[in-house]
Write a protein that binds this DNA or RNA. Structure first.
Lengths: 222, 222
DNA sequence: TCAATAGGTAATTTCAAAAATATATGATGA
DNA sequence: TCATCATATATTTTTGAAATTACCTATTGA
């Protein structure tokens, strides 16, 4: 076969591509994933695909029923609310831990991540929405930075998985409540520097609930 | 090939078997999983194995590094404590929700699950430890019953995954603090019927921390 | 007309072997 | 003795095709 130009194995790359396509809605919810077609689209064999899809079914991003193949996990308003409330539980707790034991390096990570995110939000406001993909990645990195001093690898990984599923809904709804979210992000950063976990929990709750409301308001999600 | 005598596909069955063997320590932590050997042991092809192992690597029960194959996830005292604290966070929250909105059916499930578990704990005390596998399953089912009215599928699934990893450590340590655990289980049931979530949280905290201490005391975990 | 079934097609699941990669072995030179 | 490189072996990764199962269509009989 061809040489590995990118990092990792062929399957690894296919995994990242397919996962990204699901999270960004290029593979629509509940869409049937026929192996023959995917084989064409991603240029890998069925066995490799199967490996990738099995992995994604463990993450609940695809469903694999019996002997009837794979499909992209469906979406529902109920699941969105459910995911959001789990994200809130994990993130509030992680933030409290982080605020308690975060050192100077942690503060630097938070400020740096917020800087990149805020720059993106500014650019988005002036020039429309240029690159939603990197914008959402900065969002991810900011929230990850906030909890990065919580001291629990398990908590961070679990939160990351839930966050990804949450982000999928945001991408599907193409929700863009930019200015409000930007203000909340700034508040969170400031509360981090002041170590005010209680207030940060409230802001986060409003932040997440606002995101849910906005996503549901678009009406694309049944 | 041979007919499917059991439920599901061949890969499905291999998945359950291998997963069980990891959780019960028959496949030791950090053990290298050579495909040729597994192929012999489980009677499936390498592609199918690969599919199974990929899935398990998503659950963090095996690690898959680069082009160097798979191995059983290692264990550490630190990870045990980490897992236990995440379990506590999820289960306390789920219990609070459950206690609030549990109906009569829920109470019945809790009582029924406790009955089976208590019977098993009694039998274990008199006859030694007969069937650790089903005993732990009853343990699992009791705790699952307690949170089964929490109203959040995501929370229950996430809790289930964490609980399984916790159980793996208990199996590895062959810990058996039966009478104390049995008393705590009874307390949890009674607190459920009285809807005393706050007290239940405290008991659960002691329950889990006790399990951790006991597992670490055995000294089998580095 | 409708239900049931048989036959054919499409899809999934499983396998075994080829290709790619890593690991071990041993020889060579400083 | 030790490091380095080349060769050989072992293992993983990927593929394409065979075996199995599900799905669709049309025919038959009531």
């Amino acid at each position: 076969m061809a040489q590995n130009t990118d990092e990792g194995t062929t399957g690894e790359r296919a995994y990242r591509r397919i996962r990204g396509d699901i999270l960004q809605g290029r593979l629509a919810p509940a869409e049937k994933l026929k192996l023959e077609r995917l084989k064409e689209d991603y240029g890998v064999s069925v066995s490799t695909l199967r490996e990738v899809l099995s992995r994604l079914s463990s993450e609940k991003l695809v469903v694999a029923e019996g002997q009837r193949g794979f499909e992209v996990a469906p979406v529902s308003a109920e699941e969105l609310k459910d995911i959001a409330s789990l994200r809130l539980l994990l993130e509030v707790h992680a933030i409290a831990q982080s605020f308690q034991s975060g050192d100077m390096d942690w503060e630097a990570r938070v400020v740096a991540a917020h800087h990149k995110l805020a720059a993106m939000e500014d650019k988005k406001k002036t020039e429309g929405s240029p690159d939603i993909e990197t914008w959402k990645r900065y969002d991810w990195e900011f929230h990850q930075a906030l909890i990065s001093a919580c001291g629990s690898r398990e908590l961070m990984e679990t939160h990351g998985a839930v966050f990804d599923k949450y982000l999928r809904y945001q991408m599907l709804a193409l929700t863009d409540r930019g200015e409000i979210a930007a203000r909340e992000h700034r508040q969170l950063m400031e509360l981090a520097l002041n170590r005010d976990a209680a207030k940060a929990g409230e802001v986060l709750k409003a932040h997440i609930n606002g995101g849910v409301e906005h996503a549901l308001a678009v009406g694309r999600i049944v």
